[in-house]
Amino acid sequence: MPRPATSRLDVRKTYKLYVGGAFPRSESGRTYAVVDGKGSFLANAAQGSRKDARDAVVAARKAFPGWAGATAYNRGQVLYRVAEVMEGRREQFAAEVAAAEGVTARVAQSTVDTAIDRWVWYAGWTDKIAQVVGNANPVAGPYFNLSVPEPTGVVAVLAPQRSALLGLVSVVAPVLAGGSTCVVLASEDRPLPAVVLGEVLATSDVPAGVVNILTGRTAELAPWLAEHRDVNAIDLCGGDPEQAVELERSAADNIKRVLRAGEPDWTSDPGLLRLTAWLETKTVWHPMGV
């Protein structure tokens, strides 16, 4: 965090949750101390609870029909708007990333730039993915037959633990690009960039509830999301590999779509893996005749 040069006392920010478009504290009243790479105190982050997780799922479900029903062009513009607003806060994000990840200012700046560009990349996908993964099917009969991708629904995301911003954007943006909504557990030890991202989302025309960000203990909150019957899919990306096995078992109870734990190199080409993971194929038939 930048320190003031003068004797003026800086106004610190309260880092809260981002649920349903608002910034509540945890209903549990709990917080936990977040420190930087050297162990110095940064802030008290909200320590989300089971109730917060369930509220977040309700908000994500409520937002789903509107987001899924928005035109792909509209979703693309909203995602591009996120990049625009982030761009205006480049320095703030760089400072947050440097503090959270303990990297140099140069690396932090480059990470932020890649994160902004990732929003732009996914913004462009919203109105192209259907043409790439959907198709007409030449059935052997007098029928019109078309397969199109549709969003899966509510996706729970365990954000990467190390890459607090770029990793986070790389797992959240594809959910949004495909038309799903999400509940995100931010990096447990590096949650502050996620909260700032929430502030960007709240001011970028992303409808309330489309992204909900919880900070707190991943191992405590993840099981509630993995078990939740109104969650359709889960990205175990930043989950503890051992706990992730248990989470995958819980996810089977309502046949959630699952991406297994593991953090790739976030600076490389993301490909379509995370975009298509949260898409369903719908096939529509209609007879042809006069």
Partner: peptide, 12 residues
């Protein structure tokens, strides 16, 4: 739509 239980190898 206006049919039911149609299957085809080309149709997901």
């Amino acid at each position: 739509a206006n049919t039911f239980n149609r299957f085809d190898p080309t149709s997901p």
